[in-house]
Simulated scan of single mutants.
Amino acid sequence: MNLGSLNDFPSVTVDSGFPIIDFEQLEFPEKSLLGQGSFGSVRKAFHRNWRQDVAVKSLTFEIYGTSEQELLYSEARKLNLGSRSDYVIRLLGICLEPQVAIVMPYMENGCLSELLQDVDVPWALRWRMARQIALGMTFLHCQNPQIIHCDLKAENVLLDGDFHVKISDFGLSKWKMQSRIVTETSPMGGTPTHVPPEFFDTDGGPTDKTDVYSFSVLLWEIASRRKPYRDAEGRLNLSRPLSCYVTGGGRPDMSLVPRGVPGVDTVSQLMQACWSQCPDDRPSFQECVDQLRDVNSMFSDEDILEAIINVRRKMKAVVK
């Protein structure tokens, strides 16, 4: 199929450089669903010609309108650019019919959220993941126009076979140029537990410091292995609405971050700087990378390898 097949949708533009993937080459197992979003789903598939598993994020023309298609193509364009980083999920191509879809590599170790829930990940590996996330976000923020992710959280960090991170899910992300959001089709959104206080009390759009705040909560997730603001039963553990709590200066409970762990003091200071009430007081991702480099230097390559073996063993025990 050529790009002319989109003539019925004149407001949708597709980058002519995108590889076009034949949807008929994709085999979906009976239990293929990997995740469900607000305007699409991600499923595991096997590409017959490539002989490899892939992840397919799809929409259908019958169900969704043109604006949602624009969102998907916008996500594909950002992936096409962002995946030049080792720490951003790669775009393999797009399908145009019978379903609109973007095709990405399948990440066999799932998402960081599930791993943290199931396994007590050794600190050497946790801090490597934290730094790789910061490196991926640095790359996105250094693009022109800048790419603002808008929904950075553990669920949107995928893990490859060696537990290297791949930042994913650019459905809410925005292009930012000259302090103006230029992708009008991108919805306002984000996960309430990970958005900064200014999100709740201003009409301004997201900035790079929005992602930095989300990263601070993600660091807290990595350190605590918990969901922010929730009790053991998964309920919001607040005496007032989350928006009021955050705008009033409330943050995730630092008492849940373990003490006496190598690097934890530096990371704790960093996360608190990143969730500063004033956006201008938050560091850049370049500064985050530099501080996390110092934390990572506390561990050797052998420590990382041992951590990976340890996690693989624990994951097998969880599956059993």
Score class of each variant (00 low, 15 high):
E70T: 00
V42S: 02
T13P: 04
G35D: 06
G249Q: 12
L125C: 07
S11M: 13
S11F: 10
I63F: 01
R180S: 15
K174R: 15
G65K: 05
A317V: 12
P279N: 11
S41V: 12
R251E: 10
F23I: 11
I102Q: 03
L218G: 08
T247P: 04
P262V: 08
K174C: 14
Y229M: 10
M298T: 09
I63M: 02
R312I: 03
E97D: 09
S168D: 06
V195I: 10
Q178P: 07
Q269M: 12
G205H: 05
G17T: 13
R90L: 00
W127Y: 15
S284V: 14
I133R: 02
V42H: 01
A273D: 10
S268T: 12
A55R: 03
L115H: 02
R180A: 14
Q25T: 15
V289I: 05
M271P: 04
G93L: 08
G82V: 02
L135G: 03
K314C: 06
A45G: 07
Q277A: 12
A76C: 01
R77L: 07
Q178L: 15
L152C: 15
Y245R: 12
Q36F: 06
D253V: 08
R90A: 03
I63H: 01
T66N: 00
Y73S: 05
R131A: 14
Q69K: 01
E114D: 15
P105I: 02
S214H: 04
M137S: 10
T210V: 11
P10N: 11
Q286I: 12
S67A: 01
D203K: 00
E70L: 00
Q269R: 14
S11T: 13
N80Q: 08
Y106V: 04
D22P: 10
L33F: 01
T183F: 04
D120E: 07
R313S: 11
P145L: 12
